[in-house]
């Protein structure tokens, strides 16, 4: 059954924008989606991955290495003879990390089969290896054990998984876009961890009947005839794919004027965010959005559009402040851009 097409997702504009931005610039540091159940979070992420063009990867490499990347960075590719590595086309991976996954399964561990069967010390790659160059999706990230979240964010930030356990010692590439989702009513992430996610968006079940009916109708049409439904949207999908690819090309050449940097700094000051990560992410996100728009340089408008997603999870908590973080960002935006 083909995946539900990205272009057929109704509403949830902020989440779609955040995912597209992450697809254009994976270095932004992942997307956190907080909100109700049944709002199409996992549908959207699977749809996005299916939409991306297949990537070239070294044949047989458990880390999906790019054949043009330096071979030394990957334990598998470094062991291959010769300089030219054979490559094949692979779909962009989306790896699910289930709650209650063990550390072994996430980072990889001693290959028990080979250790016990053949007496060979070998590494069995984990989920991080499979997610390299793709997406790692964690539903209910707020319920994930803290040490695992710590580990994931660390790997996501460095792009390298370092394994030192059971007598194994190796490093392998693990660059992926981390997508977490959850419902804040069931527990919250620690602020330190929140801060590591590049973007945070809030999704809610659509409240107006028309949108709700549109969602249900689209889903129903898809379930009745998946192939036909996807074929009808093939054009839209291609258009989005082209936009992403163009934006990726344009990204390194985009001009970020000093005025935009100043705006970003003013905003972060007004909100009292800790550290410089807020400014950095805001600037990168605005640049990715400008690239998606096909603009020449980053403007105030881009900053204004991405500020809530880039900043709302970095505000210092005040348990007795009643107003939500989105409202606080909006207030600061109104002040700075007045």
């Amino acid at each position: 059954m083909p995946t539900f097409p990205f272009s057929a997702i109704v509403a949830q504009d902020e989440m779609r924008q955040a995912l597209l931005i992450a697809a254009v610039d994976p270095s932004i540091g992942g997307v956190l989606v907080f909100g109700d159940r049944g709002t199409g979070k996992s549908t959207a992420i699977r749809a996005l991955a299916a939409l991306l063009p297949p990537m070239r990867a070294v044949v047989g490499c458990p880390y999906n290495c790019d054949p043009d990347s330096p071979a030394e960075s990957c334990p598998h590719c470094a062991s291959l003879p010769g300089t030219r590595r054979k490559s094949e086309k692979k779909p962009v991976p989306v790896v699910d990390l289930p709650l209650g996954a063990t550390e072994d399964r996430v980072v990889g561990t001693l290959d028990l089969e080979r250790a016990l069967g053949a007496g060979v010390k070998a590494f069995e790659p984990g989920l991080l290896a499979r997610a390299n160059r793709g997406f790692l999706y964690i539903d209910e990230v707020n319920l994930l054990e803290d040490h695992l979240v710590d580990l994931l964010l660390d790997v996501a930030a460095s792009g390298v998984n370092t394994v030192e356990r059971e007598g194994l010692s190796l490093r392998h590439p693990a660059k992926f876009v981390l997508v977490g989702s959850g419902n804040p009513e069931e527990g919250e992430l620690r602020p330190q961890l929140l801060d590591r996610f590049g973007l945070a968006c809030e999704v809610t079940t659509p409240q107006d009947i028309a949108t709700r009916i549109a969602v249900v109708r689209a889903r129903d049409a898809y379930e009745r005839d998946p192939e036909g439904f996807c074929a009808a949207r093939a054009g839209d999908e291609t258009a989005i794919r082209k936009t992403i690819l163009l934006a990726r090309e344009r990204l390194p050449h985009l001009n970020v004027p000093d005025s935009a940097l100043e705006r970003a700094a003013q905003l972060c000051l007004a909100l009292g965010t800790d550290g410089l990560r807020g400014e950095l992410t805001l600037m990168r996100t605005a640049r990715a959005l400008a690239a998606l728009d096909g603009a020449e340089s980053v403007t105030d408008d881009h900053i204004r559009r991405v500020a809530p997603a880039a900043l709302r999870h970095r505000l210092r908590r005040n348990p007795l402040d009643e107003s939500g973080s989105t409202a606080r960002v909006e207030r600061a935006l109104a002040e700075v851009f007045s």
Partner: peptide, 21 residues
């Protein structure tokens, strides 16, 4: 039919869209 079910779900306060689907 789907519109009717959506409106019913709304009237009954069923938030998740999996209900009407």
């Amino acid at each position: 039919p789907l519109g009717t079910l959506c409106r019913l779900a709304e009237a009954l306060g069923v938030a998740s869209l999996r209900g009407p689907i």
